[in-house]
Design a protein around this nucleic acid. Structure first.
Lengths: 350, 350
DNA sequence: GGCCCGAAGTTTTACGTATAACGTGCGGAG
DNA sequence: CTCCGCACGTTATACGTAAAACTTCGGGCC
């Protein structure tokens, strides 16, 4: 015979706890059947139960402090109204904002969002699904979280990809940022100011967006006489960026007059490198960021940067997933971005 | 009779999906009973099943792509190995790091962490538990997430509080940062440099830590001749902080020579305010931060700030929760902090 | 030979919920 | 009066898993 959960202290999760009341307890206390309780509390069958009984049941449930057992409900329904969001790291403001957006749309539809921040560096690459500890209805994954993608594809869960190659991502839907446009705007801005020697300070991670950025940049300067772009890569961290930028600025030949950075963090490093070399920003050298994170306006001068609608990415991702789960056709979105011109860019020195 | 989940498209979450194989399917395919499959895959009863059979089952499971249904497992076991982490907002680096720490310890024990970032401003205060969409074993909550606390206390879930008043938090365990010591270190550093007129730039949210900071600060300057601290409050945002700091610096009487800020974000605003008033940092005015977030080293000068072991907070919080669930006595921790002296502090002008 | 024992499975059960299927009175229409 | 239909409940299942309790079989021991 199966035994009830005991308080045998045989491992985490087995401590004694006063057992939560079940719908059956509520039923007993209210003098109705368990089904009636379920009917009332689910209130999706209007008129199925008389107001009198319904009120009684609701009161009883409140008194007993009844909370439906989600595990049981999930099992019964075969779905969980829970989505997995796979991102590289939450400490990157962009992804924290993506989560926020996704969670807010989810909440509107009584969905939950559980995170899988793929472990950086340390620790073995774990199984996103086991780690989530929740039965999932679908997955939203950033293409940046490269390690986890293989595992995810191994399931038949509906998948929405964020910022991934539109061709062959294997996802049921995609939400992309118009990165190419962003790069065109940045380049246009700098070329317009008169810059010709440009450094592209990029993240060390080669993802789809890196390729797009580099390619767009190359194409944008093509045909502009004297314009040259050199790509330098760095870890996504201020100090690493400072060193990379310093090396680049110290390189042989005429000094570049502008730095296009793939994130505000990298831009912060670039600014520090410039200062260290005695260059004023923006008088001697222009710097652009990417993300329009909190950093952008905290720095001095404030960063000219590309504003990314991070929350929108999460919202659209979640909406697309909901559409899929609903049997509707999901939208593939390309979200517009905008260049925010602040104080870190100016015409190059004469 | 109960019906199986249908693909009737009657709402989100009902889309057609190839049904996942169950342990029974694996059993059938392997020619054993369902119980055997469970026994093998749970592998916690060594020797219970012959190696031959076990291998067969494992192979079959792999072939079919079997993944245990967590909802069913959770129901059966009456626990979920899932904890809820309640924080104000993930976009604050500190809390993102707390999450990271908690999630890493959780992962080591096959636990999951689901987040409840209490909605800021917009939206009705939702039910953290309903929103989590997961059956929970316990809760770790920051005292900053004031709104959600009442709901949480309404349950009998084991609760670990972060940064809350040691007296009467109602939690089974606590993890605190030694905020008082931090404030003493900061004040000592500034007083030692010769500062006497100090502004305390604090967050607008009145939580336990605010009280501790203000009190400690007041006590630290007590008895130091001529030393005075004035508290100014601001939203946790660069621009708001800049304005608040500017107002404070423009106030009547001799100008303060140091600003103690309750977060790096506030410090960034303070630095901007100083610059706007034509004051050099640190020559004319000193500024200290709190958190040692990415901002601290991105700014120029780099911030003298209090380093908070955010990840440790999450780790200890999770460990304490695991201890409770395990029936062990949880540790109440007070984590040490350290002052990191960088370039934003110096002796006051002569 | 009788008996007990361990090994290796299998059968059975319960977890708590949602809902299909099934009563059961009562009022009104024919 | 009969019978239908509605309003309001109740009964009975099934979801997939873990594990206790039971079965079967072969061997060792006295």
């Amino acid at each position: 015979m199966a035994e009830p959960p005991r308080t045998d202290g045989s491992g985490p999760g087995t401590a004694a706890r006063s057992p939560r009341p079940t719908s059956r307890d509520v039923a007993r206390a209210a003098g109705v059947s368990q089904a009636t309780v379920s009917l009332v509390l689910g209130d999706k069958w209007p008129g199925r139960v008389s107001e009198r009984t319904a009120g009684l049941v609701r009161d009883t449930a409140r008194e007993l402090g009844y909370r439906p057992n989600l595990a049981a409900r999930n099992l019964r329904l075969g779905r969980t109204r829970t989505a997995l969001l796979v991102v590289p790291a939450l400490t990157h403001e962009f992804f924290a904002r993506v989560y926020t957006g996704a969670a807010s749309v989810a909440a509107e539809h009584s969905f939950g969002v559980v995170l899988y921040p793929s472990p950086e560096g340390v620790g073995p690459a774990r199984d996103p699904f086991a780690s989530a500890r929740a039965a999932l209805d679908g997955v939203i994954a950033s293409s940046m979280a490269t390690e986890a993608l293989a595992t995810i594809r191994g399931t038949d869960l509906p998948l929405v990809m964020l910022d991934s190659d539109p061709a062959g991502s294997g996802a049921a839907a995609q939400v992309n940022l118009d990165i190419a446009d962003a790069m065109r705007q940045v380049t246009g801005h700098l070329l317009g100011l008169g810059h010709r020697r440009i450094i592209h300070l990029a993240s060390a991670v080669t993802s789809w967006t890196f390729t797009v950025r580099a390619d767009t940049l190359a194409e944008a300067v093509r045909g502009v006489p004297g314009a040259v772009v050199r790509t330098v890569r760095s870890a996504l961290e201020v100090h690493a960026a400072r060193e990379a930028a310093e090396r680049a600025l110290r390189g042989p030949g005429p000094r570049p007059t502008a730095l296009i950075c793939d994130s505000d963090v990298l831009a912060a490093g670039a600014v520090k490198a410039a200062r260290k070399l005695g260059l004023r920003v923006p008088d001697d050298i222009s710097v652009t960021g990417f993300d329009d994170s909190g950093l952008a306006t905290a720095l001095e001068p404030e960063l000219t940067t590309v504003r990314l609608p991070a929350e929108r990415v999460g919202e659209h991702g979640m909406s697309a997933l909901l559409a899929i789960l609903d049997g509707r056709e999901p939208e593939n979105t390309v979200l517009p971005v905008s260049l925010v011109i602040r104080g870190s860019t100016a015409p190059p020195p004469a």
